[in-house]
Computed example of a mutant assay.
Amino acid sequence: MLSDAQRSTLAATLPAVQDALADITQRFYRGMFTAHPELHDDLFNRTHQKSGEQPQALAGSIAAFARLQLEPDARRQRFILDRIAHKHASLGVTRDQYTVVHEHLFAAIVEVLGDAVTPPVADAWDQLYWDMADLLIASEADLYARAGVTPGQVWHDALVTERAQISPDTIALTLTDPEPNTSLPGFRPGQYISVQVPLADGAHQIRQYSLTGTPDSPRWQFSVKLAGEVSAYLHEQVFEGDLLHVSMPFGDLVLPDDDLPLTLASAGIGCTPVIGLLTAMAARGDERPVTVLHADRSRDRQPHRGQLAALVESLPQGRLYQWYEKASSHVLSDAVRTGQMALDDVAIDPRTHVMLCGPTGFLSSMRDEFLARDIAAERIHYETFGPELLRSGAR
């Protein structure tokens, strides 16, 4: 835990470190992947590495955690750690990998900041890193224990039993346990699994996909939109009878433990966590008010369009509003609109829990809209499989 002296040093050096974080994280990843190329090919999302999104996410996490040591906010800290811990658990991250990250991160800090990294400065940032790492390691150990596995041992093979085309560029896969009379583990509505695939260059890349079926089913179902090298492999190479290497379910975008109103807002393939949540609510006859908002390019390319409408229709107090970049005038109504999603004339209960699912830009803009409608920040939750939204107050 940071001492008062270390906290003072952290406060004095945070502006300089924060200004240099983009350079630090770029050098960190370059050094780590040179020493451990298997991490680049088999663990980290190399698409986000190439675009620069992953270094930005790491920089945001470090800066956010550092600021929270100077202005403590337990809720915000828990948000950051829970989200990272669930993602790490779905990848099978273990304690020893934190030592590897520490070695190359601090080499990058010294390389960028040079003589400014005095012994007291190095000591304070070293303590900050291990404070964050120890909290994450403990959270991940708890997630592994709840999943009934030893740390890191989250991977197993599942059998593809069904494949369906649910939009021009989206497929749905159904998995079962390859052992007869054995069910896949249960999950909480809104959770996801990681899927690891072998690529032509020898890499084994991983992506996360939300589970859309019922939690007590012996099968898992998820949908894949064609957008990148992993999804291309799943679209082109995976069919009924094939085995997929998948993780146990993880993720903290789950139904709140109360009966307050819900607002579920998604864009594109971000509808899949919403489908999972609505499926569970429909199965148990949930009677709370539920407002579902969805944005997509067009009706013909919208994945799960009919299923989404049917699930909302099955809820006693369900309402559905949809926005399309383009749509024929004859389908437009109060519930079907064109343009970007907007809350201007949508009734939003101020007590509602908001659950956002979609690309980072969508999450950021919609979070701002809900805050402007006086929804408390702690009731705005989100799911994204890209770099995390780490703006102040997000949840």
Results as ranks from 00 to 15, higher is better:
Val230Asn: 06
Leu244Ile: 08
Leu253Lys: 05
Glu229Pro: 09
Leu244Ala: 10
Leu226Val: 08
Leu226Ile: 08
Val230Gly: 05
Gly251Leu: 10
Val238Ser: 05
Ala227Trp: 07
Pro249Ala: 02
Ala227Pro: 07
Gly228Lys: 12
Leu243Ala: 14
Asp242Ser: 07
Leu234Trp: 08
Glu240Lys: 12
Gly228Thr: 14
Ser247Met: 03
Phe250Val: 07
His235Trp: 04
Glu240Gln: 15
Asp257Lys: 13
Asp257Leu: 06
Leu255Trp: 13
Ser231Tyr: 10
Leu253Trp: 04
Lys225Phe: 10
Gly228Trp: 11
Ser223Arg: 00
Ala227Ser: 12
Phe250His: 07
Pro249Lys: 01
Pro256His: 02
Phe250Gly: 03
Ser231His: 10
Gly251Cys: 09
Met248Phe: 10
Ser247Arg: 02
Val246Ala: 06
Val238Tyr: 04
His235Leu: 04
Lys225Cys: 09
Asp252Lys: 00
Ala232Pro: 12
Gly241Gln: 01
Leu243Tyr: 14
Ser223Gly: 06
Ser223Leu: 02
Met248Lys: 12
Ala227Cys: 07
His235Glu: 05
Leu255Tyr: 13
Ser223Gln: 01
Phe239Ala: 13
Pro249Arg: 01
Ser223Ile: 07
Phe250Tyr: 12
Gln237Ala: 07
His235Ile: 05
His235Cys: 03
Asp252Met: 02
Leu255Ser: 14
Leu244Trp: 07
Lys225Thr: 10
Val246Gln: 08
Lys225Val: 11
Ser231Leu: 10
Val254Lys: 13
Gly228Asp: 11
Met248Glu: 13
Ser223Asn: 00
Pro256Phe: 00
Leu234Lys: 08
Ser247Gly: 04
Ser231Glu: 09
Leu253Arg: 05
Val238Ala: 09
Val230Asp: 07
Val224Met: 06
Phe239Val: 12
Val246Asn: 08
Val230Thr: 09
Leu255Phe: 11
Val224Asn: 05
Leu253Asp: 03
Pro256Asp: 02
Leu253Pro: 05
Glu236Arg: 11
Leu244Pro: 07
Ala227Leu: 11
Asp242His: 06
Tyr233Val: 13
Pro256Asn: 03
Val224Ser: 06
His245Asp: 02
Ala232Trp: 08
Glu240Thr: 15
Leu243His: 13
Phe250Pro: 02
Gln237Gly: 03
Gly241Asn: 01
Leu243Cys: 13
Asp242Trp: 01
His235Gly: 03
Asp242Arg: 01
Glu229Cys: 06
Leu255Ala: 14
Glu229Asp: 11
Asp252Leu: 01
Leu253Met: 11
His245Trp: 04
Ser231Val: 11
Leu255Gly: 14
Phe250Trp: 06
Asp252Cys: 03
Pro249Ser: 02
Ser231Gly: 12
Tyr233Trp: 07
Leu226Gly: 07
Ser223Glu: 03
His245Cys: 01
Ser231Trp: 10
His245Val: 00
Leu226Thr: 09
His235Gln: 03
Leu253Cys: 08
Phe239Met: 10
Phe250Asp: 04
Leu255Lys: 15
Phe239Ser: 15
Leu243Asn: 15
Gln237Leu: 02
Met248His: 13
Lys225Arg: 10
Gln237Arg: 11
Ala232Asp: 14
Leu243Trp: 11
Gly241Cys: 00
Leu234Tyr: 09
Asp257Ala: 12
Gly241Met: 00
Phe250Asn: 04
Leu234Phe: 09
Leu255Arg: 15
Leu243Met: 15
Leu243Val: 15
Leu243Arg: 13
Leu244Gln: 06
Val224Thr: 04
Ala227Gly: 08
Pro249Glu: 02
Leu253Ser: 06
Glu240Met: 11
Lys225His: 08
Gly241Val: 01
Gly251Asn: 08
Ser223Pro: 00
Val238Ile: 15
